[in-house]
Amino acid sequence: MFLGIPLGDLAMLAAGLLAAGALAGVLAGLFGVGGGAIIVPILFEAFRLLGVDEEVRMPLAVGTSLAIIIPTSIKSFRGHYKKGAVDMALLKSWAVPVIVGVLVGSAVARFADPWVFKLVFILVAGFNSIKLLFGNDTWRLATDLPKGWLLRAYGSFIGLASALMGIGGGQISNMLMTLHGRGIHQAVATSAGLGLIISIPGAIGYVFAGWGKEGLPPDAIGFVSLLGFLLVVPTTLITAQIGVNLAHAWPKRKLEVAFGIFLALVCLRFVVSIFE
């Protein structure tokens, strides 16, 4: 037994989480996401198998995902930055409102029912998937991103939704940027930088949001599982550069279709979980 988990079950869990980390790292570099969209559902299933209480299972998966995203986002952002694809001016404009949104989302996490997290996941991933798979250049809100308060409002929305989904913001910022005339490659690269801005305050916020909650496993610090963090992070760091290289090698349409299919599968998984 280790942390109250039978060694056989622990070995199976470790193998699954290591594989998930490898896939998450590739996705982080490829799509400019922190890998949370794959990590959250996998952690959710792992915590279910371990008997973690239903009331804390989803926020624990989300908080742990945000912690895992920190090193993944650093690796992904550095790779895209070296290729000169990141819009640094946009990142600076979004930094403060994104952090505000993340902190609000972390506070909501302490009191929200599990279905709230799943519904946010479904709505954002579902719309983004439809847009990527079936949209075209006429699907635009404007020819460029707005200025002033509306741009800051976009940033706050990205931070809030990302904190409730346990993602690095790539799904949402990619969607917003491409709807405003930005190319998918620049959107992916800039989203990698957002992952870093979101994940650090998000993980800290979830530690405090879950502090003292009943039903958490013995390795948890608030809504962050140390075991999940330690098992997933190593492989994400190893494989993130593979995704970065793929992102800059693939043509625009191939990248959009791949991202759209990926998001559709994530969305379907959480639709099923609501009715389980």
Rank of each mutant, 00 (worst) to 15 (best):
I204N: 01
G228W: 00
L230Q: 06
A209P: 07
T235G: 00
P234E: 05
G228V: 05
Y206M: 11
L216Y: 01
V232Y: 01
T236V: 10
F208G: 03
V233I: 13
V207T: 13
L231D: 02
G212I: 10
D219V: 14
V232I: 15
V232F: 02
G215Y: 03
A240I: 11
P217V: 12
P217Y: 06
G215H: 05
W211L: 14
Y206I: 09
G205K: 13
L227T: 15
A203Q: 07
L237I: 14
P234Q: 05
L237D: 04
P217H: 10
F208C: 07
A209N: 04
L230K: 08
F229K: 09
A240H: 10
A203C: 09
S225H: 03
I238M: 13
V224K: 03
F223Q: 01
F208I: 15
G228K: 04
F208D: 05
W211F: 14
G215S: 07
G210W: 08
A240V: 10
I221E: 02
V233M: 07
F223T: 00
F223L: 05
V233E: 05
G212F: 09
A220D: 08
L231F: 09
G228S: 06
P217L: 12
S225W: 01
I238V: 15
G205I: 13
P234G: 03
S225F: 01
F223V: 03
V232M: 11
Y206D: 03
E214S: 12
L226N: 00
G222P: 07
L227I: 15
G228I: 04
L237V: 14
V233P: 01
L216F: 02
V232N: 03
G222T: 09
L226V: 15
L230H: 03
G205D: 10
Y206N: 12
A203L: 06
V224A: 03
P234T: 06
I204V: 13
L230C: 15
I238T: 11
L237N: 13
Y206V: 09
V207D: 02
F229D: 00
A220T: 11
T235M: 15
Y206Q: 09
L227D: 02
V232K: 03
G205E: 11
G228P: 01
D219Y: 08
L216S: 00
L230E: 04
V224I: 13
A203T: 08
V207H: 05
F229L: 15
V207L: 14
F223G: 00
A203H: 08
G215V: 05
K213A: 13
G210H: 05
W211G: 10
T239H: 08
D219Q: 13
E214Q: 12
T235N: 13
L231I: 11
G215C: 08
S225N: 12
F208P: 04
V232A: 07
I238L: 14
E214V: 11
P217D: 12
I238D: 01
A209Q: 07
G228A: 06
